[in-house]
Nucleic acid binder design. Structure first.
Lengths: 211, 211
DNA sequence: AGTCAACTATGACTTTTGTCACATTAATAA
DNA sequence: TTATTAATGTGACAAAAGTCATAGTTGACT
């Protein structure tokens, strides 16, 4: 029963809060590759990640997608929280990278718990804050940096998050997430390989050392 | 005495809240061009705009700046709120466009009021939400759109916010805010002028009609 | 009116990125 | 093994944006 993992992943939560979550939430499982949220969807619940890994994308009207950040166990989807107050949609897409378990909390409890549980209040605000900062970093990169730097940053982030030097993605997938084209990514990766920064395999990239 | 404008600009605030704000906050005035926040600064207070107009920029380590959004009367700086919980700095710059008056509320009251006043709680969350959305739109534009579209969007936004068809900026200033170069902006503007979308004057652009 | 500085215009060129065409290579299934 | 498919490599070219040089314009101020 994975609700027990809740306390492990969210150790700051008060006992009463954990009990309320247990009583009122639902566990949902997603297999790797499955979508948790899709563009235009209304939020009926807030998602807390207890296991697995989720990638969050921005999507435009022409179907271009753009990688924003990872959600890991112990984190929550800021968008679903932020849309709680006013029932609004958002142009966001979230996809499970690994098999993932989330706790789905009906939005109706959000307000109540905010005043009732200090730990919930701080968790929500900290979630906003960290995602906000993350978006600012994203903006920095696309606004100020060229593709080669963005690619390196992207690889770094993946190594960090995956906890492994091997990134299991094709050039095409990376190109999509950086909103570029495969050829460009291939060329840049080749250059990085010549500089000894990475080693290229089929369908995966081994990171040796980055700036 | 401009604290009376508070009720006008923030009509949703409860009477008790308004009284507390009156008792515990400070009014600060900035003349056009002055900086309200600079990169790396710690937040000691939250700012509510009661009069004037503020531009918020993102700044990178090399001093490039990038326009994010306007703050108008009735709005607040989300960053200063979001940094309230954990005392953190942020790479943000805010500049008064017109002469501006803000109410400066010590962060220590934030938490207390969140549970005490529903209107404050909703105001804070709505501030987060709308700024979050605004950042997503910004990301869309720099990730998915070319310079010509971004320029049109930029002009549109200024017309909306300024409530005037004449935008009092030089090509150089626009280039800086879009992180481009003057020549590029000049060329695009000239093209737009030939299409009858704008009329160019020295130090200002008159918008005729945009898509 | 004349001077000066800031702003704007523009052609030529470079760099970066995107696109197209096609070759090559590796993994997989028949 | 062979055939097939997806992934990668690469040269040639196009387009967008940035840079450089230089010249023209305008407004402001003696």
């Amino acid at each position: 029963m994975s609700i027990s993992e809740l306390q492990q992943q969210f150790p700051a939560f008060e006992k009463g809060l954990v009990q309320e979550i247990e009583a009122n939430s639902e566990i949902r499982s997603f297999t790797a590759g499955e979508q948790l949220m899709r563009t235009g969807q209304y939020f009926k619940s807030t998602l807390l990640i207890i296991d697995g890994l989720v990638k969050v994308y921005r999507e435009d009207d022409q179907g271009n997608e753009f990688f924003m950040y990872y959600l890991q166990p112990g984190q929550a989807c800021a968008l679903s929280m932020v849309c709680a107050v006013k029932q609004e949609t958002s142009q966001i897409m979230a996809k499970a990278v690994k098999d993932t378990e989330v706790i789905s909390i009906p939005l109706s409890y959000m307000d109540e718990w905010m005043s009732k549980y200090k730990s919930w209040y701080h968790f929500v605000l900290e979630t906003y804050r960290s995602r906000f900062e993350e978006l600012l970093v994203t903006i920095d990169h696309i606004a100020f940096r060229a593709m080669d730097e963005r690619l390196e940053f992207y690889l770094k982030k993946h190594v960090q998050t995956l906890g492994s030097n091997t990134i299991p993605l094709s050039h095409q997938e990376i190109a999509d997430e950086l909103n570029s084209s495969r050829e460009v990514i291939s060329r840049l990766l080749k250059k990085m390989e010549q500089l000894g920064k990475v080693k290229l395999q089929r369908n995966s990239i081994e990171v040796i050392r980055l700036g």
